[in-house]
Each structure stands twice: as structure tokens, then as C-alpha cells.
Design a binder for these strands. Structure first.
Length: 435
RNA sequence: GUGGCUAUCGUAUAACGGUUAUUACUCCGGUUUGUGGUACCGGUUAUCUGGGUUCGAUUCCCAGUAGUCACCCCA
């Protein structure tokens, strides 16, 4: 502990690797997105939940799964003074499921529909737009196996993305089946890859033992070629899984949500079963080539609860939207938070008496919902006027010794430079009449 | 996690191994005491940290820290 304590100010006076401060525009963007997403989720019947940032490390080891990259190398875990092994949550679903089980939500009317907006942590090498702490807006529907739940999740997600500006998006979707069909399929897949084992790159050969499904979305050119003829999970679906998937697609068609079957889509987390999907965006590059980019993804996780050690299965389906990805997209159209209004008034005060009384005036304006800017450090008139000029507000209020005594204030039009002395009690009404 | 590149005032930048470390913007103060935008004057502030090579290091080498890029992977 003491050995690696940071003693140089230059070392501890800097952010921890992969962490960052969020201020100004980025803050507004994130909050604006959240308010929009929250509103839509509420309309669809979702309710809020906040789970702790810290969970027992084992929750993620069991839930997300060994052999996944998230657990193998990206989990942000450590030991507390009390020797508890805890981890910063890398994703939301396992935590929400934990909450559902712990609080016996199965005794409430089903399903439980929840949304959250939380920071998530992955301990990988940072890059621009990829921080160790990022934020996800997630939605989960727990307690029903019905395909309509899958469809609602997808539809709400698509609606949110469209509402904040996403244009050419479609759903890339696949089913990896229920327990039986999934096992059958994995067996067939392994057999297929063994036949081609000499052509497989080392990394994918390794995956054959740890997580064969992941070979399907390998980026290795050789593997991509092999994957062309790999068995499709859809061919191994049992009757029930097949019916489930077919109905999900019917819902999507009914809702006019464009989708594309992708037999190689498997997603990175272990707990998925049946439906898996990603929302894709079609991008046309400057050189005219078309490519698709995954914005977000999710799926069904009917076996997660039991994997976590619960006595019985809790069917569920969910999605996680990476907020940083959304607001950094070219199509993001700025969605301001409701409370942020651009002030059109700069408040200037002169002298100590005026400054004292100005607190009451400011509160009066606030009650009338008139936001103001002011300078707390400058005392002379010309300095404050220069600041008002720089911030480009159309009006200033000048409140000095004389005005404080008379109970008035001067309202100055910055454009025409005309001024008018207004009694304080008429000030809010007068300002509102200015437009 | 693997590999590459980068690091000088708040921001952006300049300086062959050798003076007081450059410039622009910002910031702060002022140009006779309550009316701005321009102009002028003045001021604060930096070689990321720790080692090494050298008579001498902002400059070369090593390590740490952070950023960035590619991979891995993902949101």
C-alpha cells in the first residue's frame, strides 16, 4: 500500500488513467440525452432504478462469465480494507438482476421494466472516446419470456436513437437459441472449426477452447473466410426458440423497424440466450464506401439468474446504450437539458450597499424564472460592462448605490444603449416584456 | 492487456547541448473617482515527476505518470 503511494503533486494532481472530467457542453449533452431517453422510457412503461457502483466481484465473474474479455482483463476490481473483493460495475444487467433477486421482485406484477443511467467501468487501455469510465443508459425487462418484451426493448431503443438524431439505423439480429439448442449448436460449431483448425489464427484457436461463439465475430481475415460456411445457430433452434425468434421478427415488421438477420452476431457477454441484437448505423464515407457501425446492443438472458446462483430462472431481456458514443456521433442533434436557459440579462452592481441588497433582487428574478449572469469579482462599472459585452447578453441591469436607496434599477439595452429606470417591484414584469 | 508516438505559462506555440526561456490569445490591474465594445500601459503564470550522461540538459538516455494512435475488445 505505502510502497506505491503517490507523493508527487504532479502525480496525484492529475486524473487517474482513463478517467476524465465532464464539463460544459459535454455535461449538457449527456444530461440532455438522458432526459430525452428517460422521457421515452417512461412513456413505454419503464421505471427508474439506481444500483451501486460497487458490487461483489463474484457477481460479475459468475454473471458476465469467465472467458469473456470483460472479466478476464477489463474488470476493475480491488480489495477493501475489510478484505471484501469488490468491483466497479462493468455493465448494468448483472446488477439489476441482483437487485431483482435480492428484493424479491418476482412477487410484484410481472414483468418488471426498469431503466437506468449509470457510469460503467472497464479497465482497458484508454483511447479517444473510450474511457475506463463511461456512461450507459440501459433498459431491462425482467420476469417474462414473451417475445413482445424483446420487441419493446428494441423499439424503445430505436425510438430513443431516432429522437436524438440517428438517421440510417437498422437492427442486426440473431438468435443463439435456448439451452438445448445452444449446446447443440456449440458442439456443431466446434466440430466445424476443428476441421479448419490449421487455417485458424492462434487467437481464434485459443477461443475454440474458451468461448467458441466469439470466433464468429473475429476480425481475422482468415477466420472471416472460414465463417462464411460456418453452421448457423438458426438451424439448431428447437421448436420453442424458433417460435420465439419468429415472433420477435413479426413484431419488428409490424412496428416498421428495419432489421437484418446476422448469423454471426453473438455479442461479448456470456449470459445471452435466444435473441441478441445490435443497432447498426449505415455510414457513407467521404470516398463513397458504405460501412456499418454498431451503436448499441443487447439481448435476452433467460439463464442469468440461475448462473448467478439463484434457485430458479428469471427470464429477461435488455439493452445498454453507450451515451458517449451517441453524443459523439455525427448525427447527434444537441438536446439541451430543460433547466439550461441562456441568460439574457447581465446583473451589474456597484458598491457594497448595492451588492448587499442585490441578493434579494437576484432571488426575485429567480422566482420569476429569469436567469442572470453576473460578475462577483469585478467592482467597477466599466469592467462589468465590458464583461457583459463579451458574454453577448442583450440587456444589463445596473444596480448601484442610488438605485438601492430608491428601490429601483436601471435596465440597459446593450444594442441601442438606451436605459430606463424601473421600480424593483415592476422589474420582473418589465424584463419579461422585453422579450 | 500488447506495440508505436507525444508531453514547455490557463490555451496555442518558439528556442543547435550553453545568457534573464519566445510569441499570440486569455486572465488580472490601470488610463482622475457611476456607462462598455477599439486603443494604450502594466502584471502574474511554464520546461510533467524521478534518476542518468555532461563542465553544462527544455534539448540526449532510462523509468514513472498522463495523453494519443493501432491491435485486442467493446459502449
Amino acid at each position: 500500500m505505502a510502497a506505491n503511494k503517490k507523493t508527487n503533486a504532479s502525480e496525484y494532481l492529475t486524473n487517474v488513467k482513463g478517467m476524465r472530467d465532464i464539463t460544459g457542453e459535454t455535461y449538457y449533452d449527456m444530461q440532455g440525452f438522458f432526459e430525452k431517453a428517460q422521457e421515452i422510457a417512461e412513456y413505454y412503461g419503464f421505471r427508474p432504478i439506481k444500483t451501486p457502483i460497487l458490487e461483489h466481484t463474484d457477481l460479475f465473474l459468475r454473471g458476465v462469465g469467465d472467458g469473456t474479455d470483460i472479466v478476464d482483463k477489463e474488470i476493475y476490481a480491488f480489495q477493501t480494507k475489510g478484505k471484501d473483493r469488490v468491483a466497479l460495475r462493468p455493465e448494468g444487467t448483472a446488477a439489476v438482476m441482483r437487485s431483482y433477486i435480492q428484493h424479491g421482485m418476482q412477487s410484484l406484477p410481472q414483468p418488471i421494466m426498469l431503466y437506468y443511467c449509470e457510469p460503467m467501468f472497464r479497465h482497458d487501455r484508454p483511447q479517444k472516446g473510450r474511457y475506463r469510465q463511461h456512461h450507459q443508459f440501459g433498459m431491462e425487462i425482467l420476469g417474462t419470456p414473451k417475445p413482445v418484451a424483446d420487441a419493446i426493448i428494441i423499439q424503445t431503443t430505436v425510438t430513443i436513437l431516432r429522437e436524438v438524431g440517428a438517421k440510417n439505423i437498422f437492427v442486426s439480429i440473431n438468435s443463439i437459441g435456448d439451452k438445448d439448442s445452444r449446446n447443440e449448436y456449440i458442439k456443431a460449431l466446434k466440430a466445424y472449426y476443428r476441421k479448419h483448425i490449421n487455417d485458424l489464427p492462434a487467437l481464434d484457436r485459443e477461443r475454440l477452447n474458451t468461448n467458441p461463439l466469439r470466433i464468429l465475430d473475429s476480425k481475422e481475415p482468415k477466420t472471416i473466410a472460414i465463417n462464411q460456411d460456418a453452421p448457423s445457430s438458426l438451424d439448431y433452434l428447437g421448436n420453442e426458440a424458433k417460435k420465439h425468434f419468429k415472433q420477435v421478427l413479426e413484431y419488428l415488421e409490424e412496428a416498421d423497424i428495419p432489421y437484418e438477420l446476422n448469423k454471426n452476431l453473438v455479442r461479448g457477454l456470456d449470459y445471452y440466450s435466444n435473441t441478441v441484437f445490435e443497432i447498426m448505423e449505415t455510414i457513407i464515407d467521404e470516398d463513397g464506401t458504405e460501412r456499418t457501425l454498431s451503436i448499441t446492443g443487447g439481448g435476452r438472458y433467460d439463464y442469468l439468474a440461475r448462473t448467478l446462483g439463484h434457485k430458479k430462472d428469471v427470464p429477461g431481456v435488455g439493452v445498454g446504450i453507450g451515451i458517449e458514443r451517441v453524443i459523439e456521433s455525427p448525427w447527434w442533434n444537441e438536446t439541451r437539458p430543460r433547466i439550461v436557459k441562456k441568460p439574457k440579462i447581465f446583473f451589474i452592481q456597484l458598491g457594497f450597499d448595492a451588492r448587499l441588497r442585490s441578493l434579494k433582487v437576484l432571488e426575485m428574478l429567480r422566482k420569476a424564472k429569469i436567469p442572470v449572469q453576473q460578475s462577483l469579482s469585478k467592482d467597477n462599472l466599466s469592467g462589468q460592462l465590458a464583461l457583459a459585452e463579451k458574454t453577448e447578453v442583450p440587456y444589463t441591469i445596473i444596480f448601484g448605490q442610488k438605485e438601492a436607496m430608491d428601490g429601483t434599477a436601471i435596465v440597459r439595452d446593450m444594442q441601442s444603449r438606451s436605459q430606463k429606470t424601473v421600480p424593483l417591484e415592476e422589474l420582473p414584469a418589465y424584463i419579461r416584456s422585453l422579450k
